[in-house]
Amino acid sequence: MGFADLERRGTDRLRSVLAPLGVAAATGAVFAVVGAIDPNEPGHYPTCPFLWATGLYCPGCGTLRTIHALAHLDPVAAMGLNPLAMVMIPFLLFWWGRWLVRGWQGRPRRTTLAHPVWLWVFLGVVLVYWVVRNLPFGVFLAP
């Protein structure tokens, strides 16, 4: 294996990790902006359209404030604002890390995020969470 082959292989590795690194940079930018501009103060961010139209919480309600709490290193407050988002963070980090490692190793990208059964399970969890957080006994899930 010559120098040109090593150089091409290094360039291919770098190119294959640009997308996951771009996602990491965008995520860091979101955390920086939301950490600096408090969503608890009115007027900085628009109201959730679903909450505005129906008066009910969507699965994402409280996520901006969750990100703000995490940016200020307060995971307890973040958990109280959107537990589903907090539970999903380790899974998202795992999938992102797997994407990064597969790219670095030069393995082909997967065509699906996960097995369809797991995607349906996730959709079911989100729908149950959406309904329960709007019922009287699910008030602990409301932001």
Rank of each mutant, 00 (worst) to 15 (best):
residue 48 C to W: 03
residue 109 R to A: 14
residue 72 H to W: 08
residue 7 E to T: 15
residue 2 G to Q: 06
residue 34 V to H: 12
residue 98 R to M: 09
residue 93 L to F: 12
residue 44 H to A: 13
residue 44 H to R: 14
residue 115 H to N: 15
residue 28 G to A: 13
residue 111 T to V: 11
residue 32 A to Q: 13
residue 89 I to V: 15
residue 114 A to Y: 09
residue 114 A to H: 06
residue 53 A to S: 01
residue 82 N to M: 00
residue 15 R to W: 10
residue 57 Y to Q: 04
residue 10 G to N: 15
residue 1 M to G: 15
residue 27 T to G: 15
residue 138 G to S: 08
residue 45 Y to E: 07
residue 129 Y to P: 05
residue 68 H to A: 07
residue 15 R to S: 09
residue 123 L to N: 05
residue 64 L to A: 02
residue 55 G to V: 00
residue 141 L to F: 09
residue 92 L to E: 10
residue 103 G to R: 02
residue 43 G to C: 09
residue 34 V to L: 10
residue 73 L to K: 12
residue 34 V to E: 10
residue 51 L to S: 02
residue 22 G to M: 01
residue 135 L to P: 03
residue 42 P to Q: 12
residue 20 P to Q: 02
residue 59 P to E: 03
residue 33 V to Y: 13
residue 105 Q to I: 01
residue 94 F to A: 14
residue 117 V to R: 15
residue 83 P to I: 01
residue 107 R to M: 07
residue 21 L to K: 03
residue 1 M to I: 10
residue 82 N to C: 03
residue 143 P to D: 02
residue 6 L to H: 15
residue 118 W to T: 06
residue 110 R to D: 03
residue 119 L to N: 11
residue 10 G to I: 08
residue 5 D to S: 15
residue 24 A to L: 14
residue 112 T to K: 10
residue 101 V to N: 03
residue 66 T to H: 06
residue 7 E to H: 14
residue 105 Q to P: 03
residue 66 T to L: 07
residue 88 M to Y: 04
residue 68 H to Q: 08
residue 74 D to Q: 13
residue 109 R to S: 11
residue 39 P to N: 05
residue 115 H to K: 13
residue 37 I to S: 12
residue 75 P to W: 11
residue 133 R to Q: 12
residue 123 L to F: 07
residue 48 C to F: 02
residue 133 R to N: 04
residue 50 F to C: 00
residue 112 T to H: 09
residue 33 V to Q: 12
residue 41 E to M: 02
residue 35 G to Y: 12
residue 96 W to D: 12
residue 100 L to Y: 14
residue 31 F to P: 07
residue 5 D to A: 15
residue 71 A to M: 10
residue 54 T to C: 00
residue 117 V to Y: 14
residue 79 M to G: 12
residue 74 D to G: 06
residue 52 W to P: 00
residue 121 V to E: 08
residue 128 V to Q: 05
residue 77 A to Y: 00
residue 42 P to L: 08
residue 64 L to R: 11
residue 69 A to E: 07
residue 18 L to S: 10
residue 59 P to A: 00
residue 57 Y to C: 02
residue 24 A to T: 04
residue 132 V to R: 09
residue 45 Y to F: 11
residue 21 L to I: 11
residue 6 L to W: 13
residue 74 D to T: 05
residue 46 P to E: 08
residue 29 A to K: 13
residue 76 V to T: 09
residue 91 F to T: 13
residue 138 G to P: 06
residue 111 T to P: 08
residue 27 T to Q: 05
residue 31 F to G: 11
residue 110 R to F: 01
residue 10 G to S: 14
residue 134 N to H: 04
residue 12 D to Y: 10
residue 62 G to P: 02
residue 12 D to N: 14
residue 83 P to Y: 02
residue 100 L to F: 15
residue 63 T to N: 04
residue 131 V to L: 11
residue 39 P to W: 09
residue 43 G to K: 14
residue 98 R to G: 08
residue 62 G to N: 02
residue 53 A to W: 00
residue 121 V to A: 14
residue 24 A to K: 01
residue 96 W to V: 08
residue 110 R to K: 07
residue 26 A to Q: 13
residue 51 L to W: 03
residue 99 W to M: 12
residue 104 W to V: 04
residue 88 M to T: 11
residue 33 V to D: 07
